[in-house]
Design a binder for these strands. Structure first.
Length: 274
DNA sequence: ATTGAGACCTGTCGGC
DNA sequence: TGCCGACAGGTCTCAA
């Protein structure tokens, strides 16, 4: 499930257990997730300290005292949980607990991922920029450098749909199927539109590009701040998974529709998303 | 080069 | 109740 806000939530959750702590023991319960673990994975972590734990798009990046970087991706169903070592009642191991980091902080950081679309990789010093995913990744949406102009530049000339463009991590980092739909709804833009329509032929931003960039920041910020509060009742989403519901904007009387686009469900309000 | 379809996995849910 | 297909928040590869 994780998109940028959920990955950020996970980062904050495991930060106290990992940052500044040493890997005392690394348990690998499988040889692979989506791909095989890198060679000597456990050995290259053991004894190293986590200098910093950052997030880039949907990746978690742990900077190690060896100057290597540990990349972690949650895929569709991946999650971490933190357990205190030696606690009176250890949580039962789950069949999908694939990796356990035993940290010098006294915590065990457990990676659980039923579908195993997640991935872990170790990247040599200085090679992050050339990593296949990170190297080509677009701007961080919450960074001030990401704005309507940047978005328009990335979408200029693209013949694909606006929705598909937002899912392309090279255009902007961290959006997935939910928040792409949410941002388009907040911006009042149809997911069916051609991506190039938010830019002039020379790549300058139209008003819609500014609106969309602002909407992206807004839905992500709200999702991140909501994750630190108690769960609220009802759907957290404006359109996602709300087929048949009344559009919530109040600006129209539309009904949320679902259709399949690029193989994924898209939810939108045909009334107020043009 | 871009673009869409299919593949990779397991779990859950709704309908019969 | 049980079975079966559709679907799930993400990439990655491949062929047009």
């Amino acid at each position: 499930m994780p998109e940028l806000p959920e990955v950020e939530e996970v980062r904050r959750e495991i930060l106290p257990a990992m940052e500044g702590a040493r890997f005392e023991r690394v348990e690998l319960r499988r040889r692979n997730l989506r791909r095989p673990f890198p060679r000597d994975f456990a050995a290259r972590l053991t004894g190293r300290t986590v200098r910093a734990l950052r997030r880039r798009g949907k990746y978690l990046v742990a900077e190690l005292s060896s100057d290597e970087s540990l990349l972690m991706h949650l895929g569709m169903s991946g999650w971490f949980r933190v357990e205190r070592e030696g606690s009176a009642a250890p949580e039962p191991a789950d069949a999908h607990d694939h990796v356990v980091f035993h940290m010098s902080s006294g915590a065990a950081v457990v990676f659980n991922d039923p579908r195993r679309f997640g991935a872990m990789d170790l990247v040599a010093p200085g090679k992050l920029a050339r990593h296949r995913a990170l190297g080509a990744m677009g701007p961080e949406p919450l960074d001030p450098a990401f704005d309507g102009a940047a978005l328009a530049r990335a979408c200029a000339g693209k013949r694909t749909s606006l929705k598909a463009a937002l899912l392309d991590q090279r255009v902007v980092a961290g959006l997935g199927n939910i928040y792409a739909a949410e941002a388009l709804h907040l911006a009042g833009l149809s997911p069916r539109r051609r991506a190039s329509t938010i830019a002039t032929p020379s790549g300058q931003p139209k008003e819609s590009a500014h609106r969309l960039a602002r909407a992206i920041k807004e839905v992500l910020r709200r999702a991140i701040s909501r994750s630190s509060k108690p769960a609220s009742r009802g759907s957290r989403f404006r359109v996602y998974d709300r087929e048949g519901d009344r559009c919530t904007t109040g600006r129209c009387k539309g009904t949320v529709r679902r259709f399949v686009q690029a193989g994924r469900s898209t939810f939108y309000c045909p009334d107020c998303q043009q």
